[in-house]
């Protein structure tokens, strides 16, 4: 079987002044290309740490993480940007560049990859249409609503056609209407072939998806179900 992502006995411990915090303990699982995987768990169960490890934002204390058969924590720091270009990220707090317009925020990822001006113009226009933000392309993030900001963040995550999109609580700050909107968009992207890893604690979202669910509790995988439901 071909795996795109493989976690092999991954542990992560943060050293605090009082006592060590075990964010993840011996976590192992695999993700195949084109899968839609939801990572669920209470706050502090290790969801965000798991995504940070996958993005090489943190190093594991032990174990290994493979992306397309490459141990990502063996990649030298000056080459990490190449790995990150294969991954699109959607953050709960959007992390849009405040001094750039919606268009510029989305175009930025293509610019760093060296796409031509014409490619950028064409692709950004298409993605803006996909996330229904064409008429907001010249607005700055502070002029957008929460839902619009999250759609802009998703557009930025998918513009360069990454192999996988990591979405960390993408609906955390949204009302139910906008939540449905964002989840529909992620499902659509998955149907177009992009692997999605969604970290959330939104019960309604998980139950409506009927996709694979990995449940974390105190840093450990307690369930991994093909068509899982929210059960914490």
């Amino acid at each position: 079987m071909i795996f795109m992502i493989s976690f092999q006995k991954v542990s992560k411990t943060f050293q605090s002044r009082l006592k060590p915090i075990h964010a993840l303990e011996e976590v192992s699982f695999e993700v195949q290309p084109g899968e839609f995987v939801s990572i669920v768990g209470r706050s502090g169960s290790g969801k965000t740490t798991l995504l940070k490890l996958l993005l090489a934002e943190e190093d594991p204390s032990s174990g290994a993480i493979f992306f397309n058969d490459q141990d990502i924590h063996q990649i030298k720091s000056d080459k990490l940007h190449k790995l990150r270009r294969e991954i699109g990220v959607v953050f709960q707090d959007y992390k849009l560049f405040p001094s750039k317009t919606t268009y510029e925020n989305i175009a930025y990822v293509m610019e760093v990859m060296g796409a031509s001006d014409r490619e950028i113009k064409n692709d950004v226009a298409k993605v803006l249409e996909l996330v229904q933000l064409t008429d907001r392309k010249d607005s700055f993030p502070e002029e957008l609503s929460g839902g619009e900001r999250q759609r802009a963040a998703i557009a930025r995550a998918l513009i360069h056609r990454p192999q996988v999109i990591l979405a960390d609580e993408p609906t955390g700050n949204l009302d139910p209407y906008h939540t449905r909107d964002i989840i529909k968009l992620l499902v659509k992207l998955n149907e177009m072939g992009t692997t999605i890893i969604l970290a959330t604690h939104n019960q309604e979202v998980i139950n409506s998806l009927e996709k694979r669910v990995i449940t974390l509790e105190e840093g450990k995988v307690i369930r991994d179900e093909k068509k899982g439901r929210f059960a914490i």
């Binding site: 934002e57 940007h81 190449k82 990150r84 990220v89 992390k95 560049f97 001094s99 990822v109 760093v112």
Partner: peptide, 16 residues
Amino acid sequence: KEEIETMRLVGASDWF
């Protein structure tokens, strides 16, 4: 600072 962090995470090279 936060913008720089995001730039790194979306794949920008150090020079960019």
